[in-house]
């Protein structure tokens, strides 16, 4: 399954209690979002990449995910230096680029990548099922947990159905081009995808009810909080505090 490809592994992070990983991912994400200065943001990004390395994740897949995020970040980074008021650094096509804008773009880029890396290291190393289970353990409302779990179920189903519809179309010689025929076909495919996905979702839910599903998430290998998980939790919290203290001492000195 696409979104769980990184969950198969044997590194320390893979075997850490998902509850600890969820909490740390949350704490570190909030901490990083609060950082104001570049040095601390750089440190956070470095920490994120160290975590990814520690999880021994496949490089290609992980890089692919970061590229997807950076595509959207590029749109932001390309616009912000022109639109932020401040001291002009230089002009590009007679449009002024400000120091403050560059700093903001850099800061957004650093923070987003750091948060993405931390979340890949902590969350992508668990299966969705155990994350849902961990959320339930952390007393997140059952309805939200179920919403999360079923979204994953249905996304996977939709992905499969889409694959089948595309194969069926290409087997009958469909080659997408810029034509009304293509747009109409794509619209039909989307419609078929939604209906098929919905119907399959209904059947999965029926099958779950047949087996007595009542909203409880079972995990056969139950979570055990080991001393090692405690050490990792403590290290994560210390790292968050260190980032905040560092940020307090070294507000960005690059551009001011």
């Amino acid at each position: 399954m696409t979104c769980e490809r990184l969950a198969a592994g044997t590194s320390t992070l893979h075997t850490t209690d998902p509850r600890v990983k969820l909490c740390l991912a949350f704490i570190l994400s909030v901490t990083i979002a609060l950082l104001e200065g570049c040095p601390a943001q750089f440190a956070a990004l470095a920490a994120g990449f160290l975590l990814v390395c520690w999880a021994r994740l496949p490089v290609r897949e992980t890089a692919g995910r970061l590229v997807a995020i950076n595509f959207f970040l590029f749109l932001v980074a390309a616009v912000v230096p022109f639109t932020t008021p401040g001291v002009t650094a230089f002009s590009f096509l007679s449009l002024p680029v400000t120091w403050q804008g560059i700093e903001l773009a850099l800061s957004v880029w650093l923070k987003c990548n750091a948060i993405a890396a931390v979340n890949i290291a902590f969350l992508a190393t668990s299966t969705i099922f155990s994350l849902a289970h961990a959320l339930a353990h952390l007393k997140v409302p059952s309805k939200l947990v179920q919403l999360f779990f079923f979204s994953w179920r249905y996304i996977h189903i939709l992905e499969e159905e889409l694959g089948r519809i595309r194969t069926a179309a290409s087997l009958r010689g469909f080659r997408p081009s810029t034509s009304l025929h293509t747009y109409r076909t794509l619209a039909w495919m989307t419609g078929a995808l939604l209906i098929k996905g919905f119907e399959r979702g209904e059947r999965v839910y029926m099958a779950m009810r047949c087996r007595g599903f009542n909203g409880t998430f079972w995990l056969l290998s139950h979570f055990h909080f080991h001393a090692r998980d405690g050490v990792i939790a403590a290290a994560g919290i210390v790292a968050s505090l260190a980032l905040l203290i560092m940020d307090n001492r070294t507000r960005c000195i690059l551009f001011n």
Binding site: F129, R200, M206, A207, G212, F213, N214, W218, L219
Partner: peptide, 25 residues
């Protein structure tokens, strides 16, 4: 009830967990 399409019936991360799901419920 054995469903027509086994894909409707199997949703846990591993076969073992899927088989244990009913008894746990």
């Amino acid at each position: 009830l054995l469903f027509q399409d086994p894909d409707d019936q199997l949703f846990c991360p591993s076969v073992m967990e899927d088989v244990a799901f009913g008894p746990l419920n």
